[in-house]
Amino acid sequence: MIEGFVALYIFMLAAFVGYEVIGRVPVILHTPLMSGSNFVHGIVLVGAMVALGHAETPLEQVIGFIGVVLATGNAVGGYFVTERMLEMFKSSKGGAK
């Protein structure tokens, strides 16, 4: 479990990482990158699974269930959409993808 200030430090450092990692991205990749980062926050699936796994009352189960369905859609859809887009990028010199 991550708590308190440790979590805050993680938050701060991760924010800088996110900013730096795509700092100099060419416009050509904006759409795939938006799609790719959209896929990455599909990690919410892990949290949704825990929420459903720990749900006790029927109401919690229903909401948790919806959460897992939505999160899976985010992760799976995000992945295939991004992959399809990136598959298409080719150089005229051939080879490199």
């Binding site: 991550i2 993680i10 938050f11 800088f16 996110g18 900013y19 795509i22 959209n38 926050h41 919410v44």
Partner: peptide, 21 residues
């Protein structure tokens, strides 16, 4: 809330990268 570091890191990275985009 869940004490889940993977979610904190991935979410924050996307939050920052998305803001920049």
């Amino acid at each position: 809330v869940l004490g889940n570091a993977a979610m904190i890191i991935a979410g924050t990275v996307v939050g920052a990268a998305g803001t920049l985009l």
